[in-house]
Design a protein around this nucleic acid. Sequence first.
DNA 1: TTGTACGCGTTATCAA
DNA 2: TTGATAACGCGTACAA
Lengths: 360, 360
Amino acid sequence: MARQHDTSRNLSQKPQPRRSPTIADIARLAGVSPSTVSRSLAGNERIGKETRRRIADVARDLGYSVNRHARSLRMQRSGILLVLIPDIANLNYSDLLMQIDSIAHERGYDIRIGHTGVDAGRVDRQAEELFTGGIDGILLTSDYCPSSISQRLAAGEVLPVVRTLSPTAPDERIVGVQIDEEAAAFDAVSHLVKRDYRRIAHLAGSPGVLVSRLRMNGWRRALVEAGLQIPDKFIGEGFAVDDGRRAARSLMARTVYPDAVFCANDLSAYGLMAELQANGLKIPQDIAVAGFDDLSFSSLFSPPLTTVRLPRREMAEASVRYLVDLIDGKATPSPDYIPHQLIIRKSSGDRKMEYEKPGC
Amino acid sequence: MARQHDTSRNLSQKPQPRRSPTIADIARLAGVSPSTVSRSLAGNERIGKETRRRIADVARDLGYSVNRHARSLRMQRSGILLVLIPDIANLNYSDLLMQIDSIAHERGYDIRIGHTGVDAGRVDRQAEELFTGGIDGILLTSDYCPSSISQRLAAGEVLPVVRTLSPTAPDERIVGVQIDEEAAAFDAVSHLVKRDYRRIAHLAGSPGVLVSRLRMNGWRRALVEAGLQIPDKFIGEGFAVDDGRRAARSLMARTVYPDAVFCANDLSAYGLMAELQANGLKIPQDIAVAGFDDLSFSSLFSPPLTTVRLPRREMAEASVRYLVDLIDGKATPSPDYIPHQLIIRKSSGDRKMEYEKPGC
DNA sequence: TTGTACGCGTTATCAA
DNA sequence: TTGATAACGCGTACAA
């Protein structure tokens, strides 16, 4: 029985958002024990039909919802996946993130974001929570891997960690979901060859990153198979828009221009195109361009950019599924390559074609 | 004393990632009580110098890190902010999100993302955690507000909820951090007028959204003040790229073209420009274009897009600070408008100017 | 079918 | 300066 006369406490307490209902509250009002409420709300237990209804009613009336921290503490399981992303404001990652979020949700998980590009120390701390129960698993999307993770991996522990997007394995033991980067680059460059471009330069990514080497290898192999000459130097390096701009300037400083450029990603291709166009060069008439990623803006540029479409949806799906299986302790076979696709747009138009460019 | 001979349990247990150290473990090894460990690790308590050192050493050796769920449960405080975002893959939001994340971190908070555009029911459930201790506060970035929040707000409760980016208040009681949308639109259109454009059309946003009405008002007012005719119809509606494309087609179906279009946001301006250019129209010679948002790609288009820069960094900073103050129960004055800025680029180039377009 | 008792890891209060 | 104790809200083994 509540003591009806003890109003002093109510009067003295601050206007704090009053405590939200717990299963104990429901139990009291429904005239059952807390454990019965817990079981009933969990669903799949043997509970009296009438009891179940009464509990459900009270819970609804009270606006009950479970305290996730209490549950996580008790269950030693949080239902949270940590996704490590270098840069949310990069469309390649944010698009992937959206897919991951939606698929994780289908599997009953929420995601937290670890911003590796901004503050690695902070991300390392977030990753530690894998061992304190704060998070259940980690999804890597770049070659960054928190030190605590790689240490334990090296010690032979099996951890719920999966990598996608990036083909780089910070540790061999981390399973990855990826495309065949080299084959994709090969396809893109071979397409340029087929369109009669002959001096095909490469805007390489970052030298230290495996994905750059793979895409470069694809480019090189395509040239070799076509019997074309391989330039001794790239026209530039880097994945950022400004790297593309810089590459364009260095390109235009030469005596002989390439007639096509295969860029390691779309972003740098944007910068390259913008700078070339700002200096009066026409794409693809003067120089053709191809990229890698297929960001949503690539179809909007004038001319729209030919590029390799990264199957982000499929990668998200496969990697989340794999990670969840790992968490559940189910052994699953290591996944195959996800199929990629070359999207041909006007930036690589056949140089001998007539363009529907009006005017001029 | 640990029973040295009780190895049976170690043998029988599965290769589970063994339990991570707790303060109890540290206490045992350091020869003190758990409470002392807790206080010492928390920092600002009166702890013996030697004791403190010993505890710190043991904690480091064990690789201890705090269990966030246990702490949150005990503290009734999670250190997590829920940010409601319609679409992470929209640069306007993802850029804002990055700023928010970084500033929230400075203030000691982590953020969780609520994807209102994808699954509103799910977001409503996430918002419920404000009352169960799962999250400490909510940051709104669109006009979407979870039902449980608006209900309690309507009931007069004071909640740690702040809105930014969107000028729409789902509820008057929610404080907002915003720019003067109407003035910004006015500035953009006035700039077009100054550049001698006379038939300035408007690609409106979504009719139901306040931000659309504000930007439209700014457009209208600028025309009125310049003594120009106000078209009886918009050339289209919507914020998406495809809405811009559609608007371009409807525009080109007319007998008299406008000579400039003020778009409610950059994304729709991208679509408009792409479609106009695909049909041989030149920007700005045939039609000038201005947008709103200043996404990072707007400087890359050819021609680069004139637009209103949304001060996302400043908005993130002010709104997070305000939210944290609200959580801490500090009364702060409602913030003023954040200053905006018009970024003038070539898409609104003076029509009488000679362009450095080569060729032709 | 339901209730009792306990523990998940932490911090706050109180007493020493 | 330190330790014992309780409590945050939940789920579950065990007993009834």
